[in-house]
Design a protein around this nucleic acid. Structure first.
Length: 474
DNA sequence: CCTGGAGTTGTCCTA
DNA sequence: TTAGGACAACTCCAG
């Protein structure tokens, strides 16, 4: 079987290590062609701005890993594949699966079309457990995380062990689009600014993981709640694009010693939440667009564009919320604790539809992931199958005091409040005028008044839910 | 089919 | 100051 050419179609698996499709092909074929298609035809929704930046950087790295032999094309993958099949003497095409509804639909069609002339194989390169393999005894999908994870996943077979093969990428003379011609970048200041704290690529993913396992995992269970601490992995963008496999992380965790079983288990369960999001998106393909809990369909969301804009800019006048939103805009990332706080604030205090928040995150996050993003927004909004109960409304003042006790996170992203005494840092609207004068600060000038009263808006949210409940019981 | 226990991440009030 | 219970009811899940 040697000396034949096979095509590996890269999608959300931009890595060479532990890549099941590549492993499979490399055992059968001497020469492998690596293809990436920027599909701007079928994609739903379109890539967010941050994702485009990440992808652009990633493709540069991947091309280097392939010694410049990555074939980069733009358009409809079906047509691109046909072109390659006509040019080379291709024996087999293979890829790792994606799980978004639109991709499943697209790939199914492509597979049935080209498998008439050529062998096509697909693999699991991005999940620890296939969504269709985890079902309850009655063969229906789980809706609650804990039984899904513990009984559904952990008691099933262990995840695939990571494996890396030696791969020969074919030195070809086929056309390849210049990365710049994909028009992923708009030469905006924002693009280079956000990238500053990141280095993209497979090698970097491994480095970050190693560093996290040495430094961050130690106090993960507790420390992950504090935005200023270095206890979160920040591997999410790499996981999304497959620059590291969850399997690699899963088994690397098992080899870590002396950091406490609890920390390891909690981090593993976070990988479990990622699985759960993909699982929900697979079994409930409307996850991205509609409430999982249908009884929320009549909820009276507010159409408040002005408040929404101020939320996106981090100008709500609530320090911890603004810090989170500015972290997002400035770094393409937001700490998990802040995500919950700003999410709760948008959906409950402002009564703005979770979909609006989901879309903003989609555009700004380097780790923008359709399944995780939608599932998490539905969780915080209370519209998900297994979500926070509606009466649980985060108090951003308390949250700040608890999880940013010294205010370092707030001050980093909201430097206007640098001199604010800690007593008023989380609620500057309570700072008396004489103290404001002392620190040369004026509320409403140097930093905005809060756009809503926290107590009032909390009451209003509870009332709105109460109305929904009554409407539904009619 | 029935039944009982459980459900990521909170807040507020009260004693 | 602090710990404990209420918050509201439902659906999910497993025996």
């Amino acid at each position: 079987m040697k000396n034949k050419v096979a095509v590996h179609w890269f999608r959300q698996d931009l890595r060479v290590k532990d890549n099941p499709s590549l492993n499979y092909l490399s055992k059968k074929y001497e020469n492998i062609i690596g293809l990436f298609v920027f599909d701007d035809v079928n994609r739903d929704p379109r890539l967010g701005s941050a994702s485009k930046v990440w992808l652009c950087e990633s493709l540069k790295h991947l091309n280097e890993q392939l010694n410049g032999n990555l074939i980069l094309l733009k358009g409809d993958p079906q047509e691109c594949l046909e072109e390659i099949l006509n040019f080379f003497d291709v024996e087999e095409v293979s890829w790792n699966r994606c799980y978004e509804p639109w991709v499943i639909k697209r790939d199914k069609k492509i597979k049935s079309n080209i498998s008439e002339k050529i062998k096509v194989s697909s693999f699991n390169g991005s999940l620890l457990w296939e969504p269709w393999e985890i079902l309850k005894d009655d063969n229906t999908p789980y809706k609650v995380f804990t039984p899904f994870y513990k009984r559904g996943c952990l008691s099933k077979k262990a995840p695939r062990n990571p494996e890396t093969s030696k791969i020969n990428f074919f030195n070809h003379n086929f056309r390849s689009t210049n990365i710049c011609d994909l028009q992923l970048l708009q030469n905006k200041e924002w693009e280079s600014q956000t990238l500053k704290i990141w280095q993209v690529g497979e090698a970097q993913a491994e480095k970050i993981m190693k560093n996290f396992l040495e430094e961050g995992i130690k106090d993960y269970s507790d420390g992950r709640n504090f935005p200023k601490k270095k206890n979160v992995s920040r591997l999410s963008p790499f996981l999304h694009w497959g620059q590291i496999s969850p399997n690699t992380i899963w088994y690397a965790l098992s080899k870590v010693n002396d950091v406490g079983e609890e920390n390891i288990e909690v981090f593993k369960s976070e990988l479990g939440w990622r699985e759960f999001a993909y699982y929900l998106n697979y079994h409930f393909p409307y996850l991205q667009k509609e409430n999982l809990k249908k009884n929320f369909d009549n909820f009276k969301w507010k159409n408040d564009e002005i408040s929404f804009q101020r939320w996106t800019k981090g100008e709500t006048g609530i320090p911890i919320v603004d810090a989170g939103m500015r972290e997002l805009y400035q770094t393409g990332y937001m700490h998990n604790r802040s995500r919950m706080i700003v999410g709760s604030f948008l959906v409950k205090n402002l009564l703005i539809h979770w979909k609006k928040g989901e879309e903003w995150f989609w555009d700004c996050l380097f780790d923008a992931d359709a399944a995780s993003n939608s599932a998490s927004w539905q969780w915080i909004a209370g519209t998900g199958t297994d979500s926070t109960p509606y009466f649980r409304i985060f108090n951003p003042v308390t949250q700040g005091q608890k999880f940013d006790p010294e205010g370092q996170y707030i001050k980093k992203f909201v430097p206007e409040l640098n001199d604010m005494p800690i007593k008023y840092l989380f609620s500057p609207w309570e700072c008396p005028e004489n103290i404001q004068n002392e620190i040369n600060f004026k509320l409403g000038v140097n930093y905005p008044n809060p756009i809503v009263d926290l107590k009032e808006s909390r009451k209003r949210a509870l009332l709105t839910y109460e109305i929904l409940r009554r409407e539904n019981s009619k």
